[in-house]
Design a binder for these strands. Structure first.
Lengths: 224, 224
DNA sequence: GCAAAAGTGTTGTGTCTACACCCATGT
DNA sequence: ACATGGGTGTAGACACAACACTTTTGC
């Protein structure tokens, strides 16, 4: 019988709040990294899959039903990542639609991802990896569904994309790209215009709310 | 103190041999899955990173210097994946250039990936995930360098891409795409024509032999 | 009428595929 | 000469960005 590592599951849970991409962190009360902020997660149990495990741990922070997407991100096993225990950590990326506001425990809160506090272990790098994964999939997949409410106007969706991508996005072109790819469909409803006037916005929904690759890495595709 | 899983590292090692994409497998002599074929790998030790660990295990099968690329693929922790032991497995994708022919142990050999024998555990699914990762990165990254010799003709490279992608590839367009993206450069040398004549082929090399993303998911890019 | 917000028309650019054509070598 | 394999020229299809313009509302 040989020594075994402890296996931990973590989640980078992202949501666009107040027009900014934010990540769910809790503040550690004990050593190591006392006072630093850490990703939610915990130990793996023997009867569960990795995905079941992170869902179970997240349920203590966020209602699991509010997670619109969950995918595996990376596994780190660097022996120096934890100062005392030999630990292997599998991190997931979770997304929450922008119209939800889950109840949170006292030690847990959202933090803008471009203004992170001091983070524990290697969690800072994992958070950045999660952001890059999200940004890439916004371009070649339909993952926008996981950031958006069920029904939304194009300019609302534009703001979500802009917050997640970190740069301005044109509503005109966003609409055309997503309609051309048949990701969006009109609900037929319209939103009343605001107090300052303006044409009422048509409402759209994502045609599918499960991950689908939509830009098939078009280069070098099979002959027709 | 609670129970811990055993952590295993595996590798999907791919190479184009005889014009086909092949994967390195060894045949199990003992239960479970006696006689079935399995991915190379083994237990993680406490002083090593995951990547160090898989390199160490692979060194028993293939000279590590012959691996032109190694990246993490997926971690599986389904409790039913192993019939008796509680195991978490982290799989890597490794690539070997087509001009190398490593010495192999007796129980280990290459198998065409589209004609797999019976595989142990969940290794069949992991192998397919590795193939898909390779196929995607051939389109948007320079990962072709890891399949090719240092110097090659365009038609040689075309055959490698065709084997990996599983469909015909046009040498004309492959050359143009890779030159436009500045992935290839001419070495200046030419290969003598064969016994049946033909114009001698110009030789090329990859400008970089480390992974670089070359097709920046062009959609929704930042305003200029 | 005027400002504000939403949505459409249109043009230009760049990338890719397909296919015709030209080039260099062996027999 | 002619077959063989390598390489280039060119035209068409498509997706995207940019920006001008039109539509629909509140005041």
């Amino acid at each position: 019988m040989h020594e075994k590592p402890t296996h931990v599951v973590l989640a980078v849970v992202l949501q666009v709040r107040d027009g900014r991409l934010q990540v769910l962190l809790w503040q550690r009360a004990q050593a190591p990294f006392t006072g630093a902020f850490a990703l939610p997660g915990g130990y793996l149990l023997s009867a569960e899959t990795l995905e079941d495990s992170i869902r179970r741990h997240l349920a203590e922070k966020v209602d699991v039903c509010e997670l619109s997407h969950l995918e595996q991100l990376v596994t780190t096993g660097d022996p120096v990542r934890h100062p005392s225990e030999w630990q292997v950590a599998t991190a997931y990326l979770g997304l929450v639609p922008s119209d939800l506001d889950p109840e949170l425990p006292d030690d847990t809160d959202w933090h803008p991802i471009d203004e992170l506090p001091e983070t524990a272990f290697d969690h800072g790098a994992i958070i950045l990896a999660g952001r890059e994964r999200l940004r890439a999939k916004l371009s070649y997949a339909n993952i926008g569904f996981a950031l958006a409410p069920h029904s939304f106007s194009i300019s609302q969706l534009r703001d979500l994309y802009a917050a997640a991508l970190g740069h301005e996005v044109s509503a005109t072109n966003l609409q055309r790209v997503l309609l051309r790819r048949e990701l969006l469909e009109a609900t037929g409803e319209r939103r009343a215009s605001g107090p300052s006037g303006g044409r009422p916005a048509a409402l759209f929904r994502f045609r599918s709310r499960t991950l689908e690759i939509t830009d098939q890495f078009a280069v070098l595709r099979p002959p027709s």
